[in-house]
Every structure is written in C-alpha cells, then in structure tokens.
Amino acid sequence: MSAKYILSGLVGSFAIAYVCDHLIADKKIFGGKTPPTVENKEWWEETDKKFQAWPRTAGPPVVMNPISRQNFIVKNRIDQ
C-alpha cells in the first residue's frame, strides 16, 4: 500500500526536477545566455586535444588502502 505512494512520490519528484532543470538551464527563464565556448564544438575538440597532450608526471600506481592488501608483517608478542 505505501509502496505505491513512495513510488508515485519518487516519480513525481523526478518529473518536477526535470521540468525545473529544463526551464532554468535550457529555456533560461532567469536570463543569461550560453557561453560561446560551450556552443562551439571546435573549441571543445581543441581543449580536449590540449588536455590529452599534457605529459603524465605521476609516479607508479598507489594502493589507496594498504591494510586491505595484507602485506604487512605481524610479530608475535613473545618474539619482541
């Protein structure tokens, strides 16, 4: 019973969000205009080429969580 209310509320909120986004971003109801750099496809292609041409200066890959790799040495308390 409550699932239909939850689902209809979720679908309704997505519909309202889509309409608001379309009106504000695409129709520009509050004014403004799209920058020429966004409208110009050639500009996007050149920018992408520039970013892809930058040299990579990073070192070797880094493990984000070294503890999860279990590559550390655990000593017994007796041996210490």
Rank of each mutant, 00 (worst) to 15 (best):
Ala3Pro: 00
Val11Pro: 00
Asn65Pro: 00
Ile78Asp: 02
Val62Cys: 03
Asn71Phe: 01
Glu42Val: 05
Ile67Lys: 08
Lys4Gly: 01
Ile6Glu: 08
Gly9Gln: 02
Trp43Pro: 00
Ile78Gly: 00
Ile6Trp: 07
Thr57Ala: 06
Pro60Cys: 03
Thr34Ser: 13
Val11Leu: 12
Ala58Gly: 13
Pro61Lys: 07
Ile78Thr: 06
Ile29Thr: 14
Lys4Cys: 07
Glu46Val: 03
Ile67Tyr: 06
Lys50Leu: 06
Ile16Trp: 03
Ile67Trp: 06
Glu42Gly: 04
Lys50Gln: 05
Ser68Ile: 07
Ala17Pro: 00
Asp79Thr: 04
Asn65Ala: 06
Tyr18Gly: 04
Ala58Asn: 11
Ser2Asn: 09
Gly32Asn: 13
Ser2Val: 06
Ser68Asn: 12
Glu46Gly: 02
Pro55Val: 03
Arg77Thr: 01
Lys41Ile: 14
Met1Thr: 08
Lys41Asn: 14
Cys20Leu: 15
Lys4Leu: 11
Gly31Asn: 13
Arg77Met: 03
Glu39Gln: 14
Trp44Val: 08
Ile24Ala: 14
Gly32Ala: 12
Ile67Ala: 09
Val19Pro: 00
Thr57Ile: 12
Gly32Ser: 13
Glu42Asp: 15
Lys33Asp: 15
Ile24Glu: 14
Pro35Asn: 13
Ser2Lys: 07
Phe72Thr: 03
Thr37Met: 11
Ile67Glu: 10
Asp26Cys: 10
Lys28Leu: 15
Lys4Trp: 11
Phe51Leu: 11
Ala17Ser: 15
Val62Met: 06
Ile78Gln: 04
Leu7Glu: 10
Asp48Asn: 13
Phe51Ile: 07
Ile16Tyr: 02
Gln70Lys: 11
Gly32Asp: 10
Ser2Pro: 01
Thr57Ser: 08
Arg77Gly: 02
Leu7Phe: 12
Pro36Ile: 06
His22Pro: 00
Asn76Leu: 07
Asn40Ala: 10
Ala25Leu: 15
Ile78Pro: 00
Arg56Asp: 12
Lys27Ser: 07
Asp48Thr: 09
Val19Phe: 04
Ser13Val: 09
Glu45Gln: 13
Val19Gly: 01
Phe72Met: 04
Ile78Tyr: 04
Pro35Thr: 04
Gly12Met: 02
Trp44Leu: 10
Phe14Met: 13
Thr47Pro: 00
Gly32Val: 09
Val19Met: 05
Phe51Pro: 00
Tyr18Glu: 03
Phe51Trp: 13
Trp43His: 09
Gln70His: 11
Ile78Asn: 03
Ile16Cys: 04
Phe51His: 07
Gly9His: 01
Asn65Gly: 01
Asn71Met: 08
Gly12Phe: 03
Tyr18Met: 12
Glu42Tyr: 04
Ala58Trp: 08
Lys27His: 13
Ser8Phe: 05
Pro66Arg: 01
Tyr18Phe: 14
Ile67Gln: 08
Asn71Gln: 12
Lys41His: 12
